[in-house]
Nucleic acid binder design. Sequence first.
DNA 1: ATGGTGGCGCGGCCA
Length: 256
Amino acid sequence: MKIATWNVNSLRVRLGQVIDWLRAVEPDVLAMQETKCKDEHFPADAFAEIGYRVEFSGEAGYNGVAIASRKEATGVATDIDGFDDHQRRVIAATIGELRVINLYVPNGQRVGSEKYEYKLRWLAALRDHLRIELERHGQLVVLGDFNVAPEDEDVHDPAAWEGKIMCSEPERAAIRSLRQLGLHDAFRLFEQPPQSFTWWDYRAGAFRRNLGLRIDLILVSEQLRQMCKSCTIDAAPRRNERPSDHVPVIAEFAFG
DNA sequence: ATGGTGGCGCGGCCA
């Protein structure tokens, strides 16, 4: 069982790359973020042609999330319970025994801004929601673009980023609070190359210079932790023409 | 360097 996450930064622009990647990597599940695609325009046929079903929750221009899966998805939910939000940032589905929660966490813009406060409120509501989901589902994976680099080792220049957006202490505390619920960062279950990142700014040749952050995460429940066999970053799509600024992360499990 | 690039959608916002 292979489960992946990828912030595609516009599914319309990246559809060919996503389809090619699915054909090459053949994950059982792909969680996508920043589809920027209204539901009535979602390119479901392109996924169906290569054997994937899709569940999606989108809006025009911003945000938008989707789950592509080989098997049928049930129990689809598109909100954090009790958190009123018109922005389309969450889609959850049950695939076999597995509960998948796909997130596009708010970026937050700048520490102290209104968007930053919204990000912290959003993450606090998420924690309360995941506490309940963990009681319901033994095999729970929470994955997506978290817009937080959990530790200094997830940052190319921790001194330059100290206290900045995606690295501030309140954001990192919010991620730690998810781990305290019993969710494990799949990437850190294994030895990894230093300077492993999932996002690089489009500007200033950041990818070429590997000036990145690891902000795309796969968190797994205790049951899934024991079955997790690998977790890797696939940086190859960043070398495509017109790439997304994020690359896929893939976790492999010993079941299915 | 308060810049730089990219997506959406056609001016300015968001990342």
